[in-house]
Design a protein around this nucleic acid. Structure first.
Lengths: 242, 242
DNA sequence: TAGACCCAAACTTTCGAAAGTTCAACCGAG
DNA sequence: CTCGGTTGAACTTTCGAAAGTTTGGGTCTA
């Protein structure tokens, strides 16, 4: 009754934890203590342990033997490496996708772009952040772009890298203050190149798109060095019992 | 006393299981039952569970909810995808390695190649298989080739793919029966191109090297379809108590 | 004879407590 | 006042048993 379908209880806390990290409720660099987590998500220590093990595999959490787990810390160097890796792998997969994708894939991509175009860019309730709807539509569009690739391994690799990049995007507050950038136009150009089956141009556009976003994130991080590279802020236990 | 240094007990069964899978003591497609494993490696069920979770992350084991874990099954399609992914990612990383590697990296690569050259190709005790020494030296050489890359993420991705390919190499018996191939010469050519800092040529050689090996594996698999795609062979519980 | 239902055994999952280890503060000596 | 040793608490790790689920065989009915 507590769970539905083929989902185990560990999956529950696993997804809940991932959501909390990706949405920023858990701060990069902070420790994840078993007692607090087990209490917060109403499961036992064992289930918490397995969920954290999976998150380590996904790269969102790092583990140190005998010293517990903590949310993956952010750093300039890691962002640079991640950006390079994304540019290389995603453009590679996009090339395969454009060459191998069928008509169904084209249709899905067009549909995803349509949803992205109509999604509100900023959160009405919190104009400093992107709206959840846009973030989701954005991820769906990029995922659709790559989905034509038949190679499941390369597809998973690209998707994994993209998910980690979401962490950086989450923690670079006050987005959108970049002069002269038109994100919607970039997406439109990407879609056009893809539909024209112009793999080379699509890859070039995607590289620029990724590099552009990364440059923006780095500049944001420079403005707020606290957010990047250390726990800082507060002692921030998982449960703010104070 | 039971453990030394910073190694936890889960690490023990984790590495033991990985070794057993990579060396072929555990057959692809077979189930991994907790009671048997816990008994075999002398640990509790909980430790076994976490070890399997990590192996799932590494791609050596697959999990089905409520249905247990099993050693990753092999298939022609997966081999083809893996080969393509390796050709793309490894050649990418090799290009970065050649461009970014320093003198120390050159020295390590030369040293690894020297060890590979001097390692016996076939196992004296079992001429149908490669010798453990050569397999290890081979892996070390390829790892050294890539080690010049400064991007840890791409490096890890390449290494992970290579490890999975080892699984296929293990299960393609009766190696070396390919006429007209000189593996040692391929490695020598790779080393020369790398030392000459000729990234393009090195990448081309590596692609050929990977494709060549894959073609050999596929032909072997065709000869013995049982090995690929099904548990077959025996009911093969983990512990052969019969 | 074929198909569906039911039962039992084995296995996976989950839990809470005990054991071992690390970290930090406190105390005493130089 | 500073440094080294010691003690204590909190946390991670490990374990074995109980609960829930799936699978396979067996039986009954159409």
């Amino acid at each position: 009754m507590t769970k539905s379908g083929g989902a185990t209880r560990t999956d529950g806390i696993h997804q809940a934890l991932r959501a909390d990290i990706l949405t920023g409720r858990l701060v990069p660099g902070d420790r994840l203590k078993f007692p607090d987590l087990a209490d917060r998500y109403q499961v036992s220590v064992g289930a918490t342990r397995e969920a954290l093990t999976r998150l380590v595999a996904e790269g969102l959490v790092v583990a140190r033997p005998r010293q517990g787990y903590l949310v993956r810390p952010l750093s300039h160097q890691d962002l640079a490496e991640l950006t390079q890796a994304r540019a290389e792998v995603e453009s590679l997969v996009l090339g395969l996708s454009v060459r191998e994708g069928d008509t169904r894939w084209e249709a899905d991509t067009v549909a995803a772009h349509h949803l992205l175009e109509r999604a509100p860019y900023r959160d009405p309730a919190d104009p400093d952040h992107l709206s959840d709807e846009w973030v989701q539509a954005h991820a769906a569009f990029h995922h659709a772009l790559l989905a034509g690739c038949r190679n499941q391994r390369l597809l998973d690799a690209a998707r994994s890298l993209r998910q980690e990049a979401e962490l950086y995007r989450q923690w670079s507050v006050s987005l959108g203050n970049e002069p002269g950038r038109d994100v919607a136009a970039e997406h439109r150009a990407l879609l056009d190149a893809v539909l024209a089956r112009d793999a080379g141009r699509a890859q070039e556009l995607l590289r620029d798109h990724i590099a552009h976003t990364a440059r923006l994130l780095i500049s944001c991080a420079s403005d707020q060095p606290n957010q990047v590279g250390g726990a800082s802020a507060s002692r921030s236990s998982v449960t703010n019992t104070s």
